[in-house]
Design a protein around this nucleic acid. Structure first.
Lengths: 181, 181
DNA sequence: CTCCTTTCTTACCGCTCGGTAAGTTAGCTT
DNA sequence: AAGCTAACTTACCGAGCGGTAAGAAAGGAG
């Protein structure tokens, strides 16, 4: 049920998704949705924590086995790809999207998850870039690169996560190795 | 008028923006909007070409004076920042947003502009990465990094475009120099 | 068979949306 | 002054939204 709702929210955005469509794609009717989730916002919130918790878990698990900062960055991407491959390649969008109402509990929740991912990346970046603002900028750029890769990946089902990881390591590995041996 | 509409679309997304709000923030009433632009979709389309043309022009102008592939990538970012600083830091979102209806003329138009920017980056990437898929992946990652930086920059008015360019050159310059002397 | 509880649907409410028809204002021409 | 044109607003329409009330269906207990 949460999975279907997440799918629809990713396809149409918060404002564009209708409770009727979510309900019918779940095989139930609208009042049933409102029985389990009190409102559209709370349903979206449930999707956010559903995806966010899984995403964070996958990333933390992947990063735990990485030693150097460079490996940690690549491991973050690998965790992201692993979650996307295992669950759904589009679901990350429920966290990284700008379609929900600002200044709401939902927005706060997504910001919370984004901050946690940012903290992971930024810790690695700070180990390489001493200037905090440099590290912050680099972290945001890295996260944006990940987002963009994921979006691209949604339309490329034939590429596997392993393939993507291998390519990433091949492309950015030599670059980063030059700065942090 | 287009500027106000672009602002509202960026703030609320396509579905979330209402023609009433756009009209009143323009100082006119809704039927006036429909006199000049036939429908909501055509209004959005007008915003897309308005922003897209300016963005492409700024990027092409900036890239024209760049020789090496690395300089071209940095110049693309510089062009983006220059447009954002000169016009509005949030407007790029009208091109890079997922809130408009799929399979519409609007979606096609934004894809057109994104493709043109992609082509600029990808040409530079291909000069460094011989494998086409490698270059494609790198290009998407670079564009995503740019998107993310712009989004971050919106909330950091105190940083200037020049400052950002300088930091970018300092951070990624040494990295890229190691692969393409 | 009857009653009661739980589960789900039909049918609706108020509201806002995109979009439009009809009328009002203002200025210009003669 | 009278008439015409252009610019603009008021007031509305049907549709779809989020959300809910009230009743139908189903099953177990006595």
């Amino acid at each position: 049920m949460l999975e279907v709702a997440t799918e629809v929210f990713c396809e149409r955005g918060y404002a564009g998704a209708s409770m009727n469509e979510i309900a019918s794609r779940c095989g139930v009717t609208k009042p049933m949705l409102y029985l389990y989730f009190d409102s559209k916002e709370r349903l979206y919130l449930a999707c956010v924590t559903f995806v966010g918790d899984g995403l964070i878990a996958a990333i933390e698990k992947s990063v735990a086995s990485a030693a150097s900062p460079i490996e940690q960055v690549l491991a973050t991407a690998a965790g992201l790809f692993s979650y996307a491959e295992q669950r759904d390649r589009a679901w990350w969008g429920v966290i990284y999207s700008e379609t929900m109402p600002a200044d709401s509990a939902v927005a706060e929740a997504t910001i919370g998850y984004r901050d946690r991912i940012f903290a992971i990346i930024n810790r690695a970046a700070l180990a390489v870039l001493p200037d905090p603002l440099d590290a912050e900028i680099a972290s945001h750029a890295l996260i944006g690169a990940g987002e963009s890769l994921l979006r691209w990946w949604v339309g490329r089902p034939e590429e596997s996560a392993a393939d993507l990881n291998e390519r990433l390591a091949r492309i950015v590995g030599p670059l980063l190795a030059s700065i942090a041996p």
